[in-house]
């Protein structure tokens, strides 16, 4: 005889059974609409992208599934350049924003309790849209921008052309500046919260055992902060790696990042280029997923090392 499930076993009378069933499933029912929407959107969009990348583009009358577009995109002469440029921008912006975010978080910790308005000050850039920041960076750092005029007024340069190219430049300085403006406060906000908790718990312990500030930071706070820093790194890297509008608007015309390249393919009148565009989108997704998986493994490793099996 088949054994009843624990749920059915717990149902004594019919009248209470429905109530217990509802109580058990209530959380799932409540989140079901959101999960369904998010899941369907993701699965359908990704499924559609994969199908199109395999050549299934109905409007283009190319309905045979093939890996031809993957081969073509991967063998293109500038694909590796775009990939390298995208990774370069994402890595530089992420590393710098994380480093600065951690530094600001430590400075804030050393300052102790701050008024609420001061905390809001560094949180405001998080809610400003990227497009607005792009305009800000353009007006500040382009060769006709405020910084250039200031340098001219101070006599540092005699012509706007002498001002270093910080926007539309090959090093992507303008792009990185936009990301720093947005991501340093984000990294600070996440890291500062964790840092305050860790510090509250272990600062006095370390001092009581005779440690100085440097030992506290390097031997206790930073190691315990690593999972949080890794989380912030992954989030900011994945965002920057897949972001389109910043490199599109103030990136160098010489090289395109992968999302910009995908956009240009997508906008071509010949619909068969949609398949190439989707190939790039699928590759971006796969690379981001690869980072997420690697992050998961590293985080689990760190947690195993720092926490062990809690008893």
């Amino acid at each position: 005889m088949q054994e009843k499930s624990p749920l059915l076993k717990s149902c004594g009378k019919n009248t209470s059974c429905a109530g217990r069933l509802y109580a058990t499933w209530r959380p799932y029912i409540l989140v079901a609409p959101l999960v369904t929407f998010m899941g369907l959107t993701f699965v359908l969009a990704l499924g559609s992208a994969v199908l199109q990348s395999l050549g299934f583009v109905p409007g283009a009358a190319a309905n045979v599934l093939t890996l031809r577009f993957y081969r073509e995109v991967l063998l293109e002469s500038d694909f590796l350049t775009s990939l390298s440029y995208t990774i370069y921008i994402a890595l530089v912006a992420t590393l710098l924003s994380n480093l600065l975010g951690v530094m600001v978080a430590f400075v804030m910790l050393s300052m102790g309790q701050r008024p609420k308005w001061q905390r809001l000050l560094y949180q405001v850039p998080i809610v400003i849209p990227h497009l607005v920041v792009i305009v800000l960076v353009f007006h500040l750092f382009s060769q006709t921008g405020v910084a250039s005029r200031l340098a001219y007024w101070l006599g540092c340069i005699t012509h706007p052309n002498q001002f270093p190219l910080l926007v539309f430049d090959r090093l992507g300085i303008g792009i990185v500046l936009v990301y720093l403006y947005k991501q340093v406060p984000f990294a600070t906000m996440i890291v500062a919260g964790t840092l305050e908790n860790i510090s509250a718990r272990f600062k006095e312990v370390a001092y009581n055992l005779g440690a100085g500030r440097l030992q506290l930071c390097t031997q206790i706070l930073l190691p315990l902060l690593m999972p949080t820093i890794l989380s912030v790194f992954l989030i900011t890297f994945a965002f920057t790696f897949g972001a389109f509008e910043v490199p599109f608007l103030i990136g160098t015309p010489a090289w395109n990042t992968l999302p910009v390249k995908a956009f240009f393919y997508y906008m071509r009148p010949d619909l068969t280029y949609r398949a190439s565009s989707m190939v790039i989108n699928v590759l971006i997704t796969v690379i981001s997923l690869g980072f997420a998986i690697a992050y998961g493994h590293i985080l689990a490793l760190i947690q195993r090392q720092t926490e062990g099996g809690e008893r």
């Binding site: 312990v205 009581n208 315990l224 720092t306 926490e307």
Partner: peptide, 14 residues
């Protein structure tokens, strides 16, 4: 060198 043994031990977890 007045060392406290804290109520929750406060061992460094890492």
């Amino acid at each position: 060198k007045a060392i406290i043994v804290f109520q929750d031990y406060a061992l460094f977890p890492h």
